[in-house]
Computed example of a mutant assay.
Amino acid sequence: MGLENKKQENTGEVKGYIHSIESFGSVDGPGVRYIFFLKGCHMRCRYCHNPDTWDMNGGECMTAEEAFQKAYRYRTYWKDKGGITVSGGEALLQIDFVIELFKIAKSKGVNTVLDTSGNPFKKDPEYLKKFDELLSYTDLILLDIKHIDEQKHKDLTGWSNKNILELAQYLSEKEKDMWIRHVLVPGITDDEEDLRKLGAFVKTLSHVKRFEVLPYHTLGLFKWEQLGIDYSLSEVRPPSKEEFDKANQILETENYTEYLD
């Protein structure tokens, strides 16, 4: 059963299934963020540092109002730029909860950020109606593009990237502010040709306020071991400073027009 349709019994209020909370986040959106990491993700990214969020069940359960009040106690730390971020797992799997939470937040003037990999996105009219409602309460989207090449994306995550790229284009058409993120994994996501194609794609988008390259790390490896899941990247090392700087240079300075066919 998908989380997006679960309702609180009798009252009809939407419940969120929350894996964990970070009270003073500093990287998932502007300013100081109160971050909800929601349960559930369909993708199986080989470098995922939160495989314990994959399961659609479990976690702390609360209504959007309860979640907001929990976060709102920290509002004095947010000042002008901070606010609430919803991440995952994959937050869009609990879109009803996120809509309700952000609706409450905006009624109180709180900045809202959605951190997503875009996997549930689809151009179905019924889905888009709900997604557009979410956008109306969302100040910023953090969109993680795992890989620009579709087959390599499937090898890395188990899923196609077509709808994720469609999501990026849809956000651009809607003139929604976004940060694009890309994890640099040596030997997997650092191919120069792929980086140029990714850069070319991002250059076609409007309202991209930041393009971040994030270095691969193994801080979540212990979780794979605890869950008894084979970690296929155990021999992969984090990128060196030289590799990281080179990737940033390619994405920032290359002429991408030849890749826009």
Rank of each mutant, 00 (worst) to 15 (best):
L260V: 15
R75K: 15
E175R: 14
G82D: 06
Y137H: 11
T253G: 06
E175Y: 11
I229W: 15
E100C: 00
L214H: 01
N163E: 15
V110M: 06
A247K: 00
P186D: 02
S234D: 12
W224Y: 14
Y216V: 12
K223V: 05
K223Q: 06
A247Q: 02
P30Y: 08
P125I: 05
K130C: 01
G12K: 09
G158R: 12
T85Q: 10
H217M: 12
D55P: 00
Q169H: 04
P51M: 03
T116L: 05
S87A: 10
K162N: 14
G59T: 04
K154D: 01
E60P: 00
G88S: 05
M43Q: 11
D245T: 13
K7L: 15
Q94G: 01
K7D: 03
L251A: 09
L134Q: 07
N111M: 07
L128V: 08
Y34I: 06
L38P: 03
L92F: 01
W224Q: 03
V110D: 00
N5M: 03
P215N: 10
Y137G: 02
A105L: 09
L171I: 13
A71T: 04
R33C: 00
V32C: 10
F222V: 08
L195F: 03
V113C: 14
Y72F: 15
D96Y: 02
N57S: 11
N119I: 13
L233A: 07
S87Y: 04
R196K: 15
E60I: 14
H19K: 14
K70I: 01
A168R: 12
F36H: 07
L214E: 00
I164R: 11
P215S: 10
R210W: 07
R210F: 07
F222M: 10
H207Y: 13
F222I: 08
S117M: 04
L92E: 01
Y127L: 09
F244A: 06
F211M: 08
K162C: 10
I180G: 12
D144P: 12
E9A: 11
N163S: 15
K197W: 02
E193A: 10
L93G: 01
H217C: 10
E243N: 07
D132L: 01
V202R: 02
L3R: 15
T85I: 09
W159F: 14
L142D: 01
Q8K: 11
S232Q: 15
M56R: 12
I145V: 13
L143A: 01
E252P: 03
I18R: 12
H217T: 10
E65V: 07
F24W: 09
W54M: 00
F121P: 08
Y74W: 14
C45G: 00
G59S: 05
A168L: 12
S87F: 07
V98N: 04
L92A: 00
A64L: 00
V202N: 00
A105V: 09
A247I: 04
I180A: 13
D132K: 09
L198T: 03
E65H: 07
D139L: 01
P238F: 08
P238V: 10
